[in-house]
Amino acid sequence: MGGEAYLNLGKPNNGGTKLFSVSGHVNRPGNYEVPMGTPFAKLLEMAGGMRGGRKLKAVIPGGSSAPVLPADVMMDCTMDYDSIAKAGSMLGSGAVIVMDETVCMVKALERLSYFYFEESCGQCTPCREGSGWLYRVVHRIEHGQGRPEDLDLLNRVTDNMMGKTICALADAAAFPVRSFIKHFKSEFEYHIENKKCLVDPEVQRMGSGFFKAGAA
C-alpha cells in the first residue's frame, strides 16, 4: 500500500494503524488492528461490547502501567496518542484493559501494585523500596486496615519514585496508584472508612470471569 497511504490511514501526528489487545470485561477479548483515531466506542464494539451488558467503569488504555481513565472520559477518546494523552493517560503498549461496574478499584489497584512489587528488579532504591511500600499500603486498605492519611501517603511515595530510577518501572508502578486515587478517590475513601469494598463482594464475584453470567 505504500508508506504514505499507510500513514494516511490514521490521523495527523498519529499515522497508520495500531494493534490493540483488548482484555477484561468484554465479550470478545482479543487483538484488533484499527486505524489510529478510531473512537474507543468503536473498538469496544469490535470487541463484542461489555460482557453481560454491564456498565463500563474504567479503562486502562495502554498497558497496566498507563493511568486508568474513567468510563466517561474514555468514551470521549479516540484511540491515538494525542487523544489519550490529552485525557491524562497514554496509549503505551496498546493493551486495553476494560473494567466494568463489578470491579472494586481498590482491589484492582492492589493487584496491579502487587505485580509491580514483584516485577521490580531491585536495582534502584526508589523502585525496590517504593514498589513494596505501595503494595503494602494498598493491600492494607483493601483488607480494611486503611487509614485516612494513606491516600496522601501513596501520592507522596509515588511522587518520590517517579523519574528517579534507571528504567521506567518505578514510574510504571506509580502511575496506576496515582490515577486510581485521582479518578476513584471516593471509592478508596469509602474503603478506608467502612473497611470494605464499595462494590459488594457478591457483585464483584458475579463480574469475575469465573462466574459466568446466569450461572450464579
Binding site: P126, R128, E129, G132, N160, M161
Partner: peptide, 13 residues
C-alpha cells in the same frame, strides 16, 4: 527533594 526521597526509601526497610 530527590535526595531526601531516596534517603527515605533507603531507610524504610
Amino acid at each position: 527533594k530527590a535526595q531526601k526521597a531516596v534517603m527515605e526509601f533507603l531507610l524504610i526497610n
